[in-house]
Design a protein around this nucleic acid. Structure first.
Lengths: 136, 136
DNA sequence: GTGTGTGTACTATGTAGTTCATACACCAAT
DNA sequence: ATTGGTGTATGAACTACATAGTACACACAC
């Protein structure tokens, strides 16, 4: 599998790869696996790791630099920003974006709040247990 | 506005237009605005209504026929299927798809269920009140 | 029959977005 | 200075989608 050169990492095909890479790093930051000032792989290293094109990695890093998530001085390896104010909102941003998209998609259907919350809770716990099973 | 020939209806630009048209009809069905056996506009009428290309309308209708949502006999106008089993699951499908996508997007972040439900509820009620304001 | 409207099918074109291939400038170590 | 590693820039290639244009077969009304 993956002889075709496609990405290894859990990528869907609806969203651009470079944005999914950005999201991947945001999750790493939000969950504390990446901390302030920590060095991240070079463009080419990341490309090899994720089996994507170096330019795609570059585009993702460029996007993260525009969002002030990472910093790059000269040609030393890029690092996660040390600005705690920025890091602190990453988690909330991720959650908020997901919730916004979700609510927007069900708004027109007119689902009662109670039913909605119930379905979410059920699905969430189901996936969580499946996740645990997969790891064991 | 819309002199350019773009769609009038609330379409985003990430998803293909024809799929958003399909979704539009599914919502109409789910909310009871479209009922079993009801006649829907012809391809050319819909194209004029939504300000899209007739081929895009055709593609949407073709997709709905493949999903057995509508039926077309000869060249009489297409109608919503009378199969209640199919109509009955449209609403649940819409909700389930939205929930699946949502849960998948937040799963990696590891948000506690309680926090998640709280944020959803807050956002949902906010949007709902805004919706009411916009209508008044 | 004529005309109009239906669904359907096919090709071609334009466009936007993504990814790829390549090249360049810089720095550091050997 | 040469080699190998950075980050960076640019243009080509490719894909998906929407659109335009045209055509055909059918049915119903006049």
């Amino acid at each position: 599998m993956n002889e075709t050169g496609g990405p290894i990492v859990p990528f869907n095909n609806r969203d651009p790869v470079y944005l999914q890479v950005v999201r991947h790093f945001k999750v790493e930051i939000a969950t504390g696996k990446l901390t302030a000032g920590q060095v991240i792989p070079s463009r080419r290293e990341l490309a090899a790791l994720m089996n994507i094109n170096p330019n795609t990695a570059q585009k993702a890093y460029k996007e993260m630099e525009d969002q002030l998530l990472i910093v790059t001085e000269g040609n030393s390896p890029s690092r996660v920003t040390t600005d705690e104010r920025i890091l602190g909102v990453v988690r909330e941003e991720l959650i908020s974006e997901a919730v916004d998209a979700f609510v927007a998609s069900v708004r027109l259907i007119g689902v009662p709040v109670d039913e909605l919350l119930h379905v979410v809770k059920r699905k969430y716990e189901t996936m969580h247990s499946q996740h645990k099973e997969a790891e064991s």
